[in-house]
Nucleic acid binder design. Structure first.
Lengths: 340, 340
DNA sequence: TTGTACGCGTTATCAC
DNA sequence: GTGATAACGCGTACAA
């Protein structure tokens, strides 16, 4: 009833060679052993069911074959989908994933980052909580990451600086969505944003402004309502904006849902009375009564880029890259052409 | 520019004591050192920023402080929510989580289980893919788990046998939901199930039958449509069942959405023309046009039970437990009382 | 009571 | 070219 773990020495003994030889052969390192011996070693290793102990290997190599992933909320569909792809990609490289949730809390970012670093992960994929992107918190996270000497790439949200990052082209998408509204004759546009500490919200807003400027249009500052990326903010935005504008640009689909709910309560129809666009293209947006026009983030491509980039950085600590991914405009039924 | 890792010896040296002493003190093991020395050690450890190397510790203790979590699909809201809570709970015990997705594939179950086991995780939380619960695959997974000698607990889905498991009381919930329908005057009920290899579907069906029997009712076998836990199955079920029955019990909310879509296409109103209940209470069910009556799985409680149980098993390999969690009936607007 | 020495399983260094 | 041997950093039995 003993734990019968076959060790390197066992294989060496069975083959009548040194354990060094076994190690070299099994790791496919250049060695000057006869083909015959090599084969013998492989055979014996297989026969004995030898499995290198990853712990011992880590101790010797200083590599854990593990990537730490820190995100704000795994129950958010965007992140769960991303995590899914990241895990699949990483496993192709032989890496496992430690997953942590910050619950959008700065304190948790700190705690889990600390944990992952002390675990000696080989790399880090980080989406900070909104809290951590605040001026007074940013620096500590940033220095923690830098001081760890562990390669890391920022995902989706980031601070200014030269860190590697992967994110969607929020500005262009914001521009395109707004232009789509304008092209459909909408001159009075309301906007519901997320937290402006997030680059995603800031950049989307930049895109909105750019499109407006190009068309010689202006936005009433009161028609920009700022909040969080949730339904409640959408409800609030709806209350302020409905009956004031001909089209609403919600910075994510969840907010758009809130607008829809409020509109229904007020007896305002979409898109007959007011047009609406969202951002993210989450599952439910496509099965809504009036399907939502929105933007789809290329989650799979981003996850792949993320993993590839990190793997490069693991190999070459000096590698550095900033990847901006284009998103796709998904035109559905929530915008009405009011031209003429 | 060297890697400056403070080691146990460094602390010992700084304190002028043996590394044994430091090890004992820092691990809060009983030792007969003077309080003063203990304090000194703690102070020096802090001052030097000493962090025990988890890898070296693992090699010595044969414990990795890591739990492997294998689930079929992290992008499924039920599982992502569960994973979120599991991670939080485990971190309270000082454990990290390796997360793997089988994508509902037997081959991946095998691959990732192998991986997690070879990683020497201290425990395993497993939700098998539907494929793996098939008669010809079940045994290999089961023996793999058993042979690993690693404590594991099955979550949500399971095979017959005496493994530890945590799952929702599907039969009772199926019974309650059906009784709710019957109490509202529905005698012609249609059912849309998931794969019958899953205990969840089998048990829900049992509950349905029990409620029907008690009421002296019968179900037309043609009114039981079997498929997967997805929208498409709901659409199919809708096509077969609508206009045939007065109420439909979809075995999950996603299927219910499919029914709703089909009903809308056919101009059939819910609940005026047909009543509908689902299962799971996913986020969207509460923001639907007509909010769905369904059952809420106690995800948080289950995740907590899961983690607690596994921790017990890690401490005592002989510990064994089967936990069936009661779910809550969520009555909303999708069932019409047609009595009288 | 304190400290020494060895084991954990692997990789890597260096004499031969 | 090959094979002892020393790390890697921590825990622990055992000797002093």
């Amino acid at each position: 009833m003993k734990k019968k773990t076959t060790t390197l020495k066992d294989v060496a003994l069975a083959c009548g060679v040194s354990s060094t030889a076994v190690s070299l052969v099994l790791n496919h390192k250049p060695s000057n052993l006869s083909e015959k011996t090599k084969q013998l070693i492989h055979d014996q290793a297989l026969a004995l069911g030898y499995r290198p102990d990853p712990t011992a290997r880590s101790l010797a190599t200083k590599k854990t074959n593990t990537i730490g992933v820190l995100i704000p909320d795994i129950s958010n569909a965007f992140f769960s989908e991303a995590v899914r792809h990241i895990q699949i990609e990483l496993s192709k490289y032989g890496y496992d994933m430690f997953l942590c949730n910050s619950e959008e809390k700065y304190a948790n970012d700190l705690k889990y980052l600390e944990l992952l670093i002390s675990r000696n992960v080989d790399g880090l994929i980080v989406t900070m909580s909104a809290e951590s992107l605040t001026d007074n918190h940013q620096a500590s996270i940033q220095s923690m990451l830098r001081d760890s000497k562990i390669p890391y790439v920022l995902f989706d949200r980031f601070y200014e600086g030269d860190a590697s990052k992967v994110f969607v082209d929020n500005e262009t998408s914001g521009y395109e969505l707004t232009k789509h509204l304008i092209d459909n004759g909408h001159h009075h546009i309301g906007v519901i944003t997320g937290p402006l500490v997030l680059n995603s919200s800031r950049d989307r807003l930049k895109g909105v402004m750019k499109a407006l400027n190009e068309a010689g249009l202006h936005i009433n500052p009161e028609h920009i309502v700022t909040g969080f990326y949730d339904m409640e903010t959408g409800r609030l935005g709806g209350k302020k904006l409905l009956n004031q504008v001909s089209a609403i640009f919600a910075f994510n689909d969840l907010q758009a849902f809130g607008v829809i709910e409020t509109a229904k309560q007020k007896g305002i129809r979409i898109p007959e009375d007011v047009s609406l666009v969202g951002f993210d293209d989450i599952f439910y947006s496509a099965i809504l009564e009036t399907k939502l026009t929105t933007v789809r983030q290329p989650i799979y491509e981003m996850s792949q880029a993320l993993s590839n980039l990190l793997m490069k950085m693991v190999k070459d600590i000096n590698h550095h890259e900033v990847i901006r991914c284009p998103a796709a405009l998904i035109v559905r039924d929530s915008v009405k052409n009011i031209k003429s």
